[in-house]
Design a protein around this nucleic acid. Structure first.
Lengths: 236, 236
DNA sequence: CTGGCAGTTTGCGATAGCGCAAAACGGGCC
DNA sequence: GGCCCGTTTTGCGCTATCGCAAACTGCCAG
């Protein structure tokens, strides 16, 4: 139960409009915990006893079908909340959360949510806002899956990851956590084989450099062009 | 500016936890309007000046790409809110809303939202809940698009429509508003041609009866079976 | 240093579903 | 009552992408 410095989280969207002394009170209800790489924060279907705020690291939220197929719902970056089952009135987590890197999270008991919201209505408003943004993003993703080919979808996915969690390099942007071909396939609705083929092609064109769970965008602009290209505006 | 009877809407999820006299006050801020079949309630990209509650009829929310392709985000049923751009902090509507039937809506100015939420915090909590549910539904849709074949996706889509807006018949369930093959294609990420072929097939098997913008599920259970069938558990 | 393994690459059919084209259909409007 | 237009049906070739199989590779553990 480490002490958390309010100044570290005060600027987060979740706490917008919350007074410093109130923030202290909110944080007193939380505990922090560390999850090592590849360990589960919670499992799909488990009792939603807590909700989370990621402080360091990266977490992958994935949803599994009855038949065992998975999709990646999203990658959680530091400063973002996850596991908000209570927000939708669900008593069980609708997805599994796995730390893809060693990660540190703040944990509140779900039972504290109603009281927190009552005392600090901004929390509800702020959460509504972030959930709304995620809903928009989901719709965009559906739109892409409906109208674009695989290559474009992969391009968009990588650009989003780069924006959210890219580390600027001298020449290019590196996705700042381990991510496999399979993961990207599960983000874009395709297979790891197809993703591998696409990345191989891009690598030959100097657009990316990649290896085992590692991707560097060497030519982000070139990838933007790919992402926006109309499929049948023929390549040379 | 018709007077709206509070008792007609008091039971809606949006107003859960709101006292009757407060409800009166909330309703005083709204006006009602009627939209005839195929008219637009608002257009994607337009200034989000209002948010809406559907009283009668049905509304289709659709999102359009820069290149003109469309997807149907959802069908709005009576009692549901839509056009909640303010909830996500957007100043423009992210989709277009079209009345698919003659419809009646309540309209609040977006500018009233902050004040309403402050006076009646339940509104924020209730809205958070519904937006959360919609987010879950979006994730489910993404999961389906990633892992299922077109026929299964169409089956799921029809079952959802039947559940949300189905009219029970002597023998079967009818989707209670005009809906074309094209619409279903845009809900499931396929083409109207493929949807037409699938429905023709089903019609021959007696699963559905359909015509111009009209679909009746004659054997809902049979469609459930289709929806859940593992694609490669060969048909006889 | 070296074996083993998870992750990746690549080849090669197979095919679900698309895209185009054209005909049939049905309803409402004049 | 007949015409016109939006919707639906259906045929046919095409191809993007899958699915399976097999080889490869970088990395960690011992």
């Amino acid at each position: 139960m480490a002490k958390v410095d309010a100044s570290l989280v005060a600027h987060l969207p979740l706490f917008g409009g919350v007074k410093p002394e109130d923030l202290e009170e909110i944080l007193r209800e939380a505990r922090s915990a560390r999850y090592s790489r590849n360990s589960a924060v919670f499992e799909q279907g488990a009792d939603a006893q807590s909700f989370f705020l990621l402080l360091h690291g990266h977490v992958r939220a994935a949803k599994t079908t009855p038949t065992g197929e998975q999709i990646v719902v999203r990658y959680v970056a530091p400063g973002e909340t996850f596991g908000l089952a209570m927000a939708i009135g669900a008593s069980r987590y609708p997805a599994t959360a796995i730390a893809v890197d060693d990660s540190v999270v703040l944990i509140w008991p779900t039972s504290a949510w109603p009281r927190l919201v009552e005392r600090f209505p901004s929390l509800a408003a702020n959460t509504l806002q972030t959930v709304g943004v995620r809903l928009q993003e989901s719709h965009t993703r559906i739109l892409e899956m409906s109208t674009q080919q695989v290559e474009q979808r992969v391009a968009h996915a990588l650009l989003r990851l780069a924006k959210q969690s890219g580390k600027k390099l001298d020449h290019g942007i590196e996705i700042d956590f381990p991510i496999s071909r399979q993961d990207i396939a599960q983000m874009t609705g395709t297979t790891l084989h197809t993703v591998s083929r696409i990345l191989s092609g891009w690598e030959q064109q100097g657009l990316v450099e990649s290896g085992r769970q590692r991707i560097i965008l060497r030519d982000p602009h070139g990838i933007v062009v790919l992402a926006e290209r109309n499929p049948d505006s023929g390549a040379a």
